[in-house]
């Protein structure tokens, strides 16, 4: 009989596992933990998990190898990658290899719960999609989920999109799927004009009705030249039209050619 858990935490540090278990249990989530990735794979065989939180740097099998194993064996449990070696590269690499989110250590309880709840919600949505359309299971690590978005829109992970405009500027925003994983957004805390956003790093904070703050990750690196002031006046626009009226920033990308390879084409809405 397979036991059912919400979360499997994999990390070679006891204190990380202990804190994840404690924090998530407090939210009435069932958490299982394991000290190395190979053991984690065994557990995946034995039990059912809705979400995995996995460290990158571990002996024997590291986080990236773990992701690759999951992909090869068509295990579709969503993975959140966390690491103490939290460079931009690691963040972007994790997302490009199939992780749904990236959580740099050290994190606060809110940061952890933000990614965990979104991850669980994401899993819910994905599994319900699966039931509807089995054919659409052609997931590649480059294309983690069925993010339905307009043509020419590119996504980092499932959460943020970018579209290149004619003048060499890029509009960025959040996806429909991201909005579905969080409660209704009440307010967005923007960065200032002229500030730089970095691919895979936080570019805004979304405060939701359930008192949570979610970090939005920038799909590209660049300097902010415009922010969507309309969202300040009417936050509901983002829910109604996330891809057009509900954009977040216009940025001047600093390294478009290089970074664009790490983005994935969303599934075009039919």
């Amino acid at each position: 009989m397979k036991r059912k858990f919400d979360i499997l935490a994999i990390d070679d540090e006891e204190v990380i596992l202990a804190s994840i278990v404690k924090l998530c249990s407090a939210e009435n989530l069932r958490v299982d933990s394991v000290l190395d990735a190979k053991e984690g794979l065994n557990k995946l065989d034995k039990n059912d998990y809705r979400l995995i939180i996995c460290d990158i740097m571990m002996p024997e099998m590291d986080g990236f190898q773990f992701l690759e194993f999951l992909y090869k064996n068509r295990i579709e449990t969503p993975v959140i990658i966390t690491t103490g070696f939290s460079t931009v590269e690691n963040a972007v690499k994790s997302l490009a290899r199939g992780a749904i989110d990236f959580l740099p250590k050290p994190f606060t309880v809110d940061e952890l719960l933000s990614v965990v709840f979104r991850g669980l919600k994401y899993q819910e949505i994905i599994s319900s999609q699966e039931m509807i359309d089995v054919d659409a299971k052609k997931i590649t690590p480059q294309q983690v989920a069925f993010v339905s978005c307009p043509a020419n829109y590119l996504c980092l992970g499932y959460a943020s999109w970018a579209v290149v405009e004619g003048a060499g500027s890029v509009k960025i925003g959040v996806t429909d799927l991201f909005l579905k994983t969080v409660a209704t957004i009440k307010k967005i805390d923007f960065f200032n004009l002229d500030e730089e956003v970095v691919q895979g790093n936080t570019c805004a904070f979304a405060r939701t009705e359930d008192q949570m703050t979610h970090q939005l990750l920038a799909p590209l690196t660049g300097r902010i030249i415009k922010k969507n002031d309309k969202l300040g006046r009417d936050i509901n626009i983002i829910d109604k039209d996330p891809y057009f009226e509900g954009w977040l920033y216009t940025i001047i990308p600093s390294d478009l050619d290089y970074e664009i390879d790490r983005l994935t084409q969303g599934v075009v809405e039919s």
């Binding site: 540090e13 404690k22 103490g84 070696f85 939290s86 050290p106 606060t108 309880v109």
Partner: peptide
């Protein structure tokens, strides 16, 4: 620096998670 950063981030995670949890409770 990379080694130290990586190593220090783990105990910092312990401090930050528990303290922020306590702060919440």
């Amino acid at each position: 620096a990379a080694g130290v950063a990586h190593e220090i981030n783990n105990p910092l995670t312990g401090i930050l998670t528990y303290s922020s949890f306590l702060l919440k409770r």
